[in-house]
Amino acid sequence: MAKEYLGEFEELVLTMVGVLQEEAYGAQIADEIETRQQRSVNLSAVHVTLYRLEDKGFIKSSFGGSTNERGGRRKRIYAVTNTGFEMLRAIKDSRIDLWKLIPELNFKG
């Protein structure tokens, strides 16, 4: 269904938003990526990607609560839109279809 293609990082961030649900905001997403994937990620790159995704309509944002940790500033919580879920499903399906065809990746023990 998705005519456009997502970049690697965009796909990663979009997935993360889907994972984190209520905690899906810039700093948290960046932390999660760092912990789970062991790659260091710049905060501003995450934000730019979030904006791009929002412009493309895959996620939407709203203001969340503010905490002392953040110097009293509110967070902007992102959530995946229906289009976003469509996109994720499409990506997942296309990836799995391709990977299935690689004999070495087939069910290891």
């Binding site: 905001y25 810039g26 700093a27 960046a30 932390d31 905060l43 934000h47 503010s66 940790e69 953040r70 110097g71 500033r73 509110r74 967070k75 902007r76």
Partner: peptide, 13 residues
């Protein structure tokens, strides 16, 4: 607002 918040949160961490 959100950018600063994120930066500060990271900073403390």
């Amino acid at each position: 607002e959100e950018i600063e918040g994120d930066l500060i949160q990271r900073f403390f961490k």
